[in-house]
Computed example of a mutant assay.
Amino acid sequence: MPEPLLVAAVGDIHGRFHRVETWLDALEQARGRRVDLVLAVGDVEAFRRPNDHRRKAAKRTMPAEFAEYADGLRRVKRPFFFIGGNNEDFEALHDLQAGGELAPDVTYLGRAGERELRGLKVAYLSGIHAPRFIEQPLKRPTTVDTVKQAGYFRTAEVERLTGLRDVDLMLVHEWPRGIVQRAREENPSPPRPLPSYWIGNPVTRRLVDAVQPKWLLCGHSHMAFAVTLEGPGRPATRIACLDQAARPQESVFWLEFEGREAVRTGWGTSGAVAWEAGQRWDMSSLPAHRPTDGDGEGAPVGY
């Protein structure tokens, strides 16, 4: 039997490529094997030129680390695929709406679609919901306003995905609406504080309900979350929301697949298993809760 496929997902990187590579090294050491595939759920900030990164991300103090990969000074160790969030180098991504490689083994999946990665069917939707712009055409991002609008998904992009079925993984940036209520219904006394009921958007929720992927991975809100959507006649969609890449415990999430079925998953870089096939996936599947500490990188939701 072939060795299980090890997939590592990473929350909003915001330009911190070096630390993510170090975390993935630690995960490989802990699991005793190579990470086959890395998936990032948006707000990667793969700015090609350092000056661009410092200008457009001035509200953060993140180093412009991707420039080293784009210039060939460094190379990622594992195939890295990402979707767009609402903070990206949209000028560079505009001409890659169907996806493309930004540096060796660093691939932007595109604004919306489906791709087979290492035998897995992966669907993806970049951006967040902005009702005012969802029906407007996507303009080339040349001004402050059009750059911001490039971080919003459009109806045509959502519709491109609604007919998909038998999806192993779906990547979105913004959470689907209603999953906090679902978690509260399952456990009136959850093991950690829950975010606002109104987090997420209804468009992504309708999309997830239509596609019913086996796993959904989200970013944007800078907190870890776990819940399952299921019901009569509806197969389970297990949702893992990832924290930003300030520390690895809740911003790195890994899955081991046998064939196209996830058989075990875990958080962080310790290699400890948080869930195995047949177990319930909910808030109790998260690591022990600790507030963001140490590096002062806690940030508001949707940063």
Results as ranks from 00 to 15, higher is better:
residue 266 G to T: 04
residue 287 P to L: 13
residue 100 G to M: 08
residue 118 R to D: 14
residue 151 G to P: 11
residue 217 L to F: 04
residue 220 H to C: 04
residue 265 T to L: 09
residue 153 F to E: 05
residue 108 Y to A: 15
residue 60 R to D: 10
residue 270 S to L: 10
residue 102 L to F: 09
residue 60 R to I: 10
residue 241 C to I: 04
residue 104 P to I: 06
residue 45 E to H: 03
residue 190 P to T: 02
residue 244 Q to I: 13
residue 250 E to L: 00
residue 170 M to Q: 09
residue 66 F to C: 12
residue 216 L to R: 09
residue 55 R to F: 10
residue 136 Q to M: 02
residue 229 L to W: 15
residue 199 I to H: 00
residue 164 L to I: 05
residue 270 S to N: 07
residue 61 T to A: 12
residue 4 P to V: 07
residue 293 D to R: 00
residue 227 V to H: 13
residue 44 V to N: 02
residue 94 H to P: 14
residue 297 E to H: 01
residue 102 L to G: 02
residue 253 F to Q: 04
residue 159 E to P: 05
residue 186 E to W: 08
residue 215 W to F: 11
residue 12 D to I: 08
residue 15 G to Q: 09
residue 248 P to N: 09
residue 213 P to I: 08
residue 180 V to G: 07
residue 102 L to P: 01
residue 293 D to G: 00
residue 110 G to D: 06
residue 42 G to N: 14
residue 278 G to C: 13
residue 259 G to H: 06
residue 198 W to F: 05
residue 266 G to A: 06
residue 256 E to Q: 12
residue 169 L to V: 12
residue 34 R to W: 02
residue 105 D to N: 15
residue 293 D to Y: 00
residue 83 I to P: 12
residue 162 T to P: 06
residue 206 R to G: 09
residue 73 L to K: 13
residue 181 Q to M: 11
residue 21 E to L: 14
residue 3 E to T: 06
residue 143 T to D: 13
residue 276 E to M: 02
residue 191 P to R: 01
residue 228 T to E: 14
residue 274 A to R: 02
residue 113 G to I: 12
residue 121 K to Y: 04
residue 253 F to R: 05
residue 184 R to H: 12
residue 274 A to P: 00
residue 298 G to V: 06
residue 57 A to F: 08
residue 162 T to G: 04
residue 302 G to M: 13
residue 107 T to R: 09
residue 296 G to D: 01
residue 252 V to I: 10
residue 263 V to T: 03
residue 156 A to E: 10
residue 97 Q to P: 13
residue 78 R to S: 11
residue 176 P to A: 02
residue 74 R to Y: 12
residue 194 L to Q: 05
residue 160 R to D: 03
residue 286 L to R: 02
residue 70 A to L: 10
residue 36 D to R: 05
residue 161 L to T: 09
residue 23 W to H: 13
residue 152 Y to L: 00
residue 4 P to I: 02
residue 169 L to W: 07
residue 125 L to V: 08
residue 114 E to N: 05
residue 297 E to D: 01
residue 210 A to R: 14
residue 265 T to D: 01
residue 254 W to I: 15
residue 144 V to R: 08
residue 285 S to Y: 00
residue 64 A to E: 15
residue 40 A to I: 07
residue 181 Q to G: 09
residue 121 K to P: 05
residue 107 T to V: 14
residue 156 A to W: 08
residue 59 K to P: 06
